[in-house]
């Protein structure tokens, strides 16, 4: 057992911890907070509300694996939903155009930030901090006041439910309520699967890990470091754009206050999911569980009656603290075991 622990790669070790803790937490919620958590729909609701965060966190994990950081993602999400809202309701655009716009905005951010970070060697924190400011400010410039989108086609899309057979439940009156997920969840799942495969089984994906592990070595091993870093930012930007549209589909409105603090939730999710900010270690599945853990704990807090607004933030922070300390201790022990 000890041998196995020692030989486990850092990525797998942290992933295991994350998944175990998530299940413990969920089981705990079922045991202590009752039936609500037992219904599959409770779980699907988490997915529905967090689809955008899942996609954003995946992109962020990618950048973090290469040893960088992108804190502009929340701003990009807000900008995308506002721009799409304005396009649909005021400029007479259609849904296809809105999707293209979302992807375009995301890519633009990714490309510019990636260029500055990878080719001009500017610290990613500063670049994406400016990116965040820029996106947030631009959101206000695009449109100042929050409004709900009334575009008919969009509302139909937003309300589309994909029913999951056999997962439904009966309410108090005995009526069967089928379980459902939103389109956004499908997008998120596809993103998770694709990214997982890319990181695991493609050579280009392994380059992200190599660059994050040791940049200089990666260069010596014949990897185009700059291109890899650039690619990670472009991917992150693209995913933030997609996440923006998914978020837009979930909230159905544009507002400068949208997705506030999302970058921090995304960072927190990645870390809870076992991504090390120093780079080189991380896993998309872990990130998925990171998001789920984060939002489960929020649900638990609310169900437990601590419904004042501050408790949510304090518990998220406490949980982040817990995970960071666990990671720190585990990695230190592992090092000394060697």
């Amino acid at each position: 057992m000890k041998e196995k622990f020692k030989n486990m790669s850092d990525t797998n070790l942290l992933l295991t911890i994350t998944i175990v803790i998530f299940f413990l937490m969920y089981i705990g919620a079922i045991l202590f907070l009752g039936e609500g958590f037992l219904k599959p729909q409770a779980f699907f609701n988490i997915l529905n509300s967090q689809a955008a965060l899942i996609i954003t966190s995946c992109g962020l994990s990618l950048v973090m694996i290469t040893g960088g950081i992108d804190i502009s993602v929340g701003g990009v999400v807000a900008l995308v939903s506002m721009s799409c809202a304005v396009l649909l309701d005021y400029k007479g655009g259609n849904i296809a155009e809105a999707i293209l716009l979302a992807i375009g905005i995301g890519l633009a951010f990714g490309i510019v930030q990636g260029f500055l970070v990878a080719y001009l060697d500017i610290q990613p924190f500063i670049v994406t901090l400016a990116g965040m400011f820029f996106a947030r400010g631009l959101t206000t410039i695009v449109h100042t006041n929050p409004f709900n989108v009334e575009h008919a086609g969009f509302i139909a899309l937003k309300d589309t439910r994909i029913y999951i057979p056999g997962m439904g439940s009966f309410n108090k009156k005995g009526v069967y309520i089928p379980a459902y997920i939103n389109i956004g969840v499908v997008v998120a799942i596809v993103v998770v699967i694709v990214l997982f495969c890319v990181l695991r089984w493609s050579k280009a994906g392994r380059h992200f890990y190599a660059v994050g592990g040791n940049r200089q070595s990666a260069l010596m091993l014949g990897i185009n470091v700059k291109r890899t870093v650039f690619a990670s930012h472009v991917m992150c930007g693209l995913l933030a754009g997609i996440a923006g549209f998914v978020y837009f589909m979930y909230v159905g409105s544009g507002s400068p206050a949208h997705a506030s603090g999302m970058e921090m939730n995304a960072i927190a999710s990645s870390i809870i999911g076992g991504t090390l900010l120093t780079g080189g270690v991380g896993n998309i599945i872990g990130t998925l569980f990171g998001v789920l853990s984060l939002s489960t704990i929020q649900n638990i807090v609310q169900s437990a009656g601590l419904d004042q607004a501050w408790w949510t933030n304090i518990t998220i922070a406490a949980m982040l603290c817990l995970f960071l300390v666990i990671q720190s201790i585990v990695m230190a022990r592992k090092k000394s075991a060697e």
């Binding site: 890990y209 190599a210 994050g212 592990g213 040791n214 010596m220 080189g280």
Partner: peptide, 12 residues
């Protein structure tokens, strides 16, 4: 050493 410590021996 110009290898990546976080990768496996084979990957390196």
């Amino acid at each position: 050493i110009t290898l990546c410590p976080n990768l496996s021996v084979a990957e390196n």
